Lab assay of single mutants.
Amino acid sequence: TETYKYDDKREAEKAAEEFRRRGITVTVEERNGTWVLESK
């Protein structure tokens, strides 16, 4: 599991889209005002 942090929800979702395009499952969730993207 890799974790990436973003200040902006849009950025996180854009990154998530890129991962999914490569066939990687990711989750995006907000933690304490930071958007956390996790690849499984």
Rank of each mutant, 00 (worst) to 15 (best):
residue 6 Y to F: 14
residue 30 E to L: 14
residue 40 K to T: 13
residue 2 E to R: 10
residue 30 E to T: 04
residue 30 E to R: 08
residue 6 Y to G: 01
residue 10 R to V: 13
residue 15 A to P: 00
residue 11 E to R: 05
residue 40 K to H: 14
residue 22 R to Q: 12
residue 6 Y to N: 00
residue 37 L to A: 02
residue 20 R to C: 08
residue 20 R to V: 06
residue 23 G to T: 00
residue 7 D to F: 14
residue 31 R to L: 09
residue 13 E to P: 00
residue 12 A to E: 00
residue 2 E to G: 12
residue 13 E to T: 05
residue 5 K to S: 13
residue 18 E to S: 07
residue 21 R to N: 10
residue 14 K to T: 08
residue 32 N to G: 08
residue 19 F to M: 12
residue 9 K to S: 05
residue 16 A to S: 03
residue 28 V to R: 00
residue 11 E to P: 02
residue 24 I to M: 12
residue 36 V to N: 03
residue 37 L to K: 00
residue 17 E to K: 06
residue 36 V to M: 05
residue 14 K to R: 11
residue 22 R to N: 09
residue 20 R to K: 08
residue 9 K to M: 07
residue 14 K to E: 11
residue 25 T to D: 13
residue 30 E to S: 06
residue 38 E to I: 15
residue 34 T to W: 15
residue 20 R to T: 06
residue 12 A to L: 02
residue 24 I to N: 06
residue 38 E to G: 04
residue 22 R to Y: 07
residue 16 A to R: 04
residue 32 N to L: 05
residue 25 T to F: 14
residue 34 T to H: 14
residue 15 A to C: 06
residue 18 E to P: 01
residue 33 G to D: 03
residue 30 E to P: 04
residue 15 A to T: 04
residue 32 N to K: 04
residue 36 V to G: 02
residue 22 R to V: 09
residue 32 N to D: 13
residue 38 E to L: 15
residue 23 G to S: 02
residue 13 E to V: 07
residue 6 Y to S: 02
residue 17 E to G: 04
residue 22 R to L: 12
residue 7 D to P: 10
residue 37 L to Y: 01
residue 11 E to T: 10
residue 34 T to Y: 15
residue 35 W to I: 02
residue 9 K to C: 06
residue 28 V to I: 13
residue 3 T to N: 09
residue 10 R to Q: 13
residue 17 E to V: 05
residue 39 S to G: 07
residue 21 R to C: 08
residue 10 R to C: 09
residue 16 A to H: 02
residue 28 V to N: 00
residue 13 E to R: 03
residue 18 E to M: 08
residue 14 K to Y: 06
residue 22 R to C: 08
residue 35 W to Y: 08
residue 40 K to L: 14
residue 33 G to L: 02
residue 40 K to E: 09
residue 39 S to M: 15
residue 35 W to N: 01
residue 28 V to T: 03
residue 11 E to L: 10
residue 18 E to Q: 08
residue 19 F to D: 01
residue 22 R to F: 07
residue 34 T to A: 12
residue 21 R to W: 05
residue 34 T to S: 12
residue 21 R to K: 13
residue 28 V to A: 02
residue 10 R to K: 11
residue 35 W to P: 00
residue 24 I to L: 12
residue 12 A to I: 01
residue 17 E to F: 04
residue 32 N to R: 03
residue 18 E to T: 05
residue 22 R to W: 08
residue 21 R to Q: 10
residue 7 D to N: 14
residue 27 T to C: 04
residue 8 D to M: 04
residue 5 K to D: 05
residue 6 Y to A: 02
residue 15 A to W: 06
residue 38 E to R: 11
residue 19 F to V: 03
residue 11 E to H: 07
residue 3 T to A: 09
residue 32 N to E: 10
residue 28 V to F: 04
residue 16 A to Y: 04
residue 2 E to D: 10
residue 9 K to A: 07
residue 8 D to V: 05
residue 7 D to T: 15
residue 18 E to L: 07
residue 16 A to T: 02
residue 19 F to R: 03
residue 11 E to S: 11
residue 3 T to I: 14
residue 35 W to G: 00
residue 35 W to H: 01
residue 35 W to D: 01
residue 6 Y to K: 01
residue 38 E to N: 10
residue 17 E to Y: 05
residue 25 T to N: 13
residue 17 E to M: 07
residue 33 G to H: 03
residue 24 I to D: 05
residue 7 D to W: 12
residue 27 T to Y: 10
residue 40 K to D: 10
residue 16 A to L: 05
residue 37 L to P: 00
residue 6 Y to W: 05
residue 2 E to Y: 11
residue 7 D to L: 14
residue 5 K to A: 12
residue 19 F to Q: 04
residue 25 T to I: 14
residue 39 S to R: 13
residue 29 E to P: 00
residue 15 A to V: 08
residue 38 E to C: 13
residue 17 E to S: 05
residue 1 T to M: 13
residue 37 L to H: 01
residue 14 K to F: 08
residue 7 D to S: 14
residue 15 A to N: 03
residue 27 T to K: 08
residue 29 E to T: 15
residue 20 R to E: 07
residue 39 S to A: 15
residue 3 T to L: 13
residue 35 W to V: 01
residue 10 R to L: 12
residue 33 G to Y: 02
residue 21 R to M: 09
residue 25 T to W: 15
residue 6 Y to T: 02
residue 37 L to W: 01
residue 34 T to E: 12
residue 9 K to G: 04
residue 34 T to R: 11
residue 6 Y to M: 02
residue 12 A to C: 07
residue 14 K to G: 04
